[in-house]
Amino acid sequence: MENNSKTYWGTVLGLLTKILIIWFAVSFGAGILFAPALNSISLGGYPLGFWFAHQGSIYIFIALIFYYAKKMGDIDRQFDVHEE
């Protein structure tokens, strides 16, 4: 059990940074900037870049939010700031 609001906030920001990097990578990265390059790879009948823009990033967004919610629950308990 740690109880230090600075470390708590630092841990939270660390988690947010990690998630935002993935958020950016799948949508702006794979879905836009690198889409032309990724289109030469195919996923089923989808060109990969097109898939990220029209399908993939949305699925990953959902996963990211639930991952965030779970991780935040863990961090809250670790620092003993969770709701009763």
């Binding site: 998630i19 958020w23 949508s27 879905g31 097109f50 823009a53 029209h54 939010i65």
Partner: peptide, 20 residues
């Protein structure tokens, strides 16, 4: 393909909303 901007834009905002 360009229509993906609506798909990503109108869903990706929820990641920001949920976390920030």
């Amino acid at each position: 393909y360009g229509g993906g901007l609506f798909l990503m834009g109108w869903t990706g905002g929820y990641v920001l909303l949920a976390m920030l």
